[in-house]
Lab assay of single mutants.
Amino acid sequence: GKELVLALYDYQEKSPREVTMKKGDILTLLNSTNKDWWKVEVNDRQGFVPAAYVKKL
């Protein structure tokens, strides 16, 4: 099944490779191999968020 993460904080994208999320959002985790930036999918968009801003559910 898909792995989900919870947004712990708001995050505003700073580049086209990133995505914006709001605290409390549930996101689909696509890739967590990089310890600093995790790739997630939110609202049919894929991009990176800081790993410290999310936690695995």
Rank of each mutant, 00 (worst) to 15 (best):
G1K: 14
G1T: 15
G1H: 14
G1L: 14
G1V: 14
K2S: 10
K2F: 13
K2P: 14
K2H: 12
K2E: 09
K2G: 10
E3T: 14
E3D: 11
E3R: 13
L4P: 04
L4D: 04
L4A: 06
L4M: 12
V5H: 03
V5R: 02
V5G: 13
V5C: 13
V5K: 00
V5T: 03
V5N: 01
V5P: 00
L6V: 15
L6M: 15
L6G: 02
L6W: 07
L6T: 07
L6E: 10
L6D: 01
A7Y: 01
A7I: 03
A7C: 12
A7E: 00
A7T: 04
L8H: 03
L8F: 04
L8D: 02
L8E: 04
L8N: 02
Y9I: 09
Y9Q: 13
Y9N: 08
Y9G: 05
Y9L: 10
Y9P: 00
D10A: 07
D10Y: 05
D10P: 06
D10W: 04
D10C: 06
D10M: 04
D10N: 08
D10L: 02
D10R: 03
Y11E: 00
Y11R: 03
Y11P: 00
Y11L: 01
Y11G: 00
Y11V: 02
Y11H: 04
Y11I: 01
Q12S: 11
Q12L: 13
Q12A: 13
Q12W: 13
Q12P: 06
Q12H: 14
Q12D: 14
Q12I: 14
E13T: 09
E13K: 14
E13M: 13
E13Q: 14
E13V: 07
E13S: 15
E13P: 14
K14H: 09
K14T: 12
K14C: 11
K14E: 08
K14P: 04
K14W: 04
K14Q: 14
S15T: 12
S15P: 05
S15Y: 07
S15I: 05
S15E: 09
P16G: 10
P16L: 09
P16K: 10
P16F: 09
P16Q: 10
P16D: 12
P16T: 10
R17N: 14
R17F: 14
R17T: 11
E18R: 05
E18T: 09
E18H: 07
E18W: 04
E18D: 06
E18L: 05
E18I: 04
E18A: 07
V19L: 15
V19Q: 03
V19P: 01
V19F: 14
V19I: 15
V19K: 02
V19T: 06
V19D: 00
V19S: 02
T20L: 03
T20Q: 05
T20P: 06
T20K: 04
T20Y: 05
T20E: 03
T20I: 03
M21A: 02
M21T: 03
M21I: 14
M21K: 00
M21F: 11
M21R: 00
M21E: 00
M21D: 00
M21C: 06
M21W: 02
M21G: 00
M21S: 00
M21V: 09
M21Y: 02
M21N: 01
K22H: 10
K22L: 09
K22S: 09
K22V: 09
K22P: 00
K22E: 06
K22Y: 12
K22W: 10
K22M: 09
K22F: 12
K23M: 08
K23G: 05
K23L: 05
G24Y: 05
G24R: 02
G24N: 06
G24Q: 02
D25R: 03
D25E: 12
D25K: 04
D25G: 05
I26D: 00
I26Q: 05
I26A: 03
I26T: 06
I26W: 05
I26G: 01
I26R: 05
I26P: 01
L27F: 07
L27W: 03
L27Q: 01
L27R: 01
L27D: 00
L27M: 14
L27E: 00
T28Q: 11
T28E: 11
T28D: 05
T28H: 09
T28S: 09
L29A: 02
L29I: 05
L29K: 02
L29G: 00
L29W: 02
L30S: 03
L30E: 03
L30R: 04
L30P: 00
L30N: 02
L30D: 01
L30Q: 04
L30T: 05
L30Y: 04
L30W: 06
L30H: 05
N31F: 07
N31C: 13
N31I: 08
N31W: 08
N31T: 08
N31L: 10
N31R: 07
S32Q: 09
S32M: 09
S32D: 15
S32F: 07
S32N: 09
T33N: 12
T33W: 09
T33M: 11
N34W: 07
N34E: 11
N34D: 15
N34A: 09
N34F: 08
N34I: 06
N34Q: 10
N34M: 09
N34T: 06
N34S: 10
N34Y: 09
N34H: 12
K35R: 12
K35H: 12
K35S: 13
K35N: 13
K35Y: 08
K35D: 10
K35V: 12
K35L: 10
K35G: 09
D36P: 03
D36E: 12
D36R: 14
D36S: 12
D36L: 14
D36K: 14
D36I: 15
W37E: 03
W37A: 02
W37V: 03
W37Y: 07
W37G: 01
W37H: 03
W38R: 02
W38T: 03
W38N: 01
W38S: 03
W38I: 05
K39Q: 13
K39L: 15
K39G: 06
K39N: 07
K39V: 14
V40Y: 01
V40Q: 00
V40F: 00
V40W: 00
V40E: 00
V40D: 00
V40I: 08
E41Y: 07
E41V: 10
E41P: 00
E41T: 08
V42M: 14
V42C: 11
V42L: 15
V42A: 14
N43I: 11
N43M: 13
N43Y: 13
N43S: 10
N43C: 13
D44T: 11
D44F: 10
D44R: 10
D44W: 08
R45D: 04
R45G: 05
R45C: 06
R45H: 07
R45Y: 05
R45E: 05
R45S: 06
R45K: 11
Q46W: 09
Q46R: 11
Q46E: 11
G47H: 02
G47F: 08
G47M: 05
G47P: 00
G47Q: 02
G47I: 04
F48P: 00
F48K: 03
F48L: 09
F48M: 08
V49Y: 01
V49H: 00
V49W: 01
V49M: 02
V49S: 01
P50A: 02
P50S: 02
P50E: 02
P50R: 04
P50N: 02
P50F: 04
A51N: 02
A51F: 03
A51V: 06
A51Y: 02
A51S: 13
A52W: 10
A52N: 13
A52E: 10
A52G: 11
A52T: 11
A52F: 09
A52L: 11
A52P: 08
A52R: 15
A52C: 15
Y53D: 03
Y53H: 06
Y53Q: 05
Y53E: 02
Y53S: 09
Y53P: 01
Y53L: 12
Y53V: 06
V54H: 01
V54F: 06
V54S: 01
V54R: 01
V54P: 01
K55F: 11
K55R: 14
K55A: 13
K55E: 11
K55N: 06
K55Y: 11
K55W: 10
K56P: 10
K56M: 11
K56H: 08
K56S: 08
K56N: 07
L57T: 06
L57E: 04
L57D: 03
L57P: 03
L57C: 13
L57S: 04
L57Y: 09
